[in-house]
Design a protein around this nucleic acid. Structure first.
Lengths: 311, 311
DNA sequence: TTGTATGCGTTATCAT
DNA sequence: ATGATAACGCATACAA
């Protein structure tokens, strides 16, 4: 018990005793067992995070800052990669909760009833990122993808574009952006000349292949809206390889403000969303709750369209 | 005890009993507590991984496949990001070992004596990646960075280049590649006209800035060797922006075979190392040991130079 | 300031 | 095939 106090609440131990204990700890190479500590105290000081993948900056950036923020407060992050297909999600959540994390980060806010039941029974703080439902499971930090799609439409319409094509991944968030875009374009009477669904996560190569598949249908002056900067970079690369000038002949708009967009030639018009901030805020919400506070249930992070050279 | 058997060794339970137990599990929403299980069995079924960052594909790719491989076998991965400065590494390892992981993945094979003592006392399988020392702490999967540097030198010398510049990050592995390169070039009597140390992890922007800083010193025909494809992509971008043709005027060579190199214009000559394979093999080594086997202590993954358009 | 008793929720082991 | 008992290594609560 005295050893436990030396480690966790050194103030409550006489300095003479504490230094004897520390000497013994050093001599023995003692490493406290947090598994036992977690069982006893019912606090594991561990946070679980479930994201589809870390192979895309869309998730590696928030997870990086999420982990950084939590580890500064003595928490560890258990990372689980769910993929995009949704199969096995319930088993994954079950397995994660079996570790008794003190808190949980989830991607997206739509879950099956079975998963919701698991989450509620777990009775731990949960933060969902990358989405902006009005009714989060617990807490949320994200934004409205449909709104972004509409904003992109408005931007391109204001720039004078009247013909459009879409290269978008099929996951829920990319789909929401696509629908927001298409709805706004339809309301303006503008046609979608071609549309192509890409895999999630989509890479540069998917953008190249996607553009190649539709380019014959795209007259001069078409704006190609892409679901990520990687896709957009691929689309630009392919368009130029096929002799179509960007933006004079084809315009391209991305999403995510990844570093590649700034170095692209021409530089990439895109939507900036602060991924690292999302991860940090998610961590802060969990920490606040674990400290007994009541952080805002719902934080909408700003986005803004970055007009650059490609559209 | 019967519940435990239904969950872990269902074969040893009568089917009638098992189904009653399963019904109760379902009715109660019971989720087993792996913290208690781990304490009792002294197996946490958790593997810890320590890498500098996941913001670079250099590490996110291996970690992705490492995690995938382990989770298929019922293991969870606890991810810790160490940064590159080395400060706090001992505290980090200590904190990680306090969770009693069944195995550990580390980046690199050089550790302080204090850390080595911690690792040995932990008495768990350890696999080090991205390095190729002859004397791994336990197991290792990686390659010899100095050898890669020398191979790049040979390739460029064979292509006829006689003037060189280096844009390399300062971390131990990038440094090893740089030294291997410079040694070989020195042996061939070729000068390094300019050299620039970049931050770790280096991004596209670092490549741009780095090249801009040295470009005045680079005559036509210089080969610029970069410590990653991101740096190389930045260097190409900057060179072209400054009116220097690639590869006719300046040649550029990268490292890592990231996707961006294929889409780059001109396409990027680089060194291909199979990051996902490294992560998978690391996971397989740990799994083999945990299953009582004796996998090879040391696996060297192949690399090869990919001659493309930029050099 | 330090020490003692107890319980956290499992699994290993032995008994039936 | 199932049950009983005793750890596992800490932290909580209380006592001294």
């Amino acid at each position: 018990m005295t050893v436990s106090r030396v480690i966790n609440t050194p103030d409550r131990v006489a300095e003479a005793t504490a230094s004897r204990v520390r000497a013994a700890i050093e001599a023995l190479g003692y490493v406290p067992n947090l598994v036992a500590g977690g069982l006893s105290s019912r606090r594991t000081r561990m946070i679980a995070a479930i994201v589809p993948t870390i192979a895309s900056p869309m998730f590696s950036a928030p997870i990086q800052s999420f982990t950084d923020t939590l580890s500064r407060q003595g928490y560890h992050v258990m990372l689980s990669l769910s993929g995009y297909d949704g199969a096995g999600d319930e088993a994954l959540v079950h397995a994660v909760l079996a570790r008794r994390p003190d808190g949980l980060l989830l991607t997206g806010a739509r879950h099956s009833p079975d998963i919701l039941r698991l989450l509620r029974n777990a009775a731990i703080p949960i933060v969902e990122i990358w989405d902006a439902t009005e009714t989060p499971t617990d807490m949320l930090v994200g934004f409205d993808h449909a709104e972004i799609g509409a904003a992109v439409a408005d931007y391109l319409l204001a720039k004078g574009f009247r013909a459009f094509a879409v290269l978008a991944a099929g996951d829920p968030r990319a789909t929401a952006r696509r629908l927001g875009l298409c709805e706004r374009l339809a309301a303006s009477g503008c046609p979608i000349l071609a549309e192509r669904t890409l895999p999630s996560p989509s890479l540069i190569g998917d953008g190249r292949l996607g553009l190649r598949a539709i380019i014959a249908d795209l007259p001069r002056g078409t704006a190609v809206v892409c679901s990520s900067d990687l896709v957009a970079f691929g689309a630009i690369t392919e368009a130029r390889a096929l002799g179509r000038a960007v933006p004079e002949d084809l315009a391209v708009c991305g999403f995510g403000d990844f570093e590649i967009g700034m170095a692209s030639e021409p530089s990439l018009t895109t939507v900036s969303v602060d991924g690292p901030a999302m991860g940090r805020i998610a961590a802060e919400k969990l920490l606040a709750r674990l400290a007994g506070g009541t952080p805002a249930r719902r934080t909408i992070v700003p986005f803004r369209i970055l007009p650059r050279a490609s559209a």
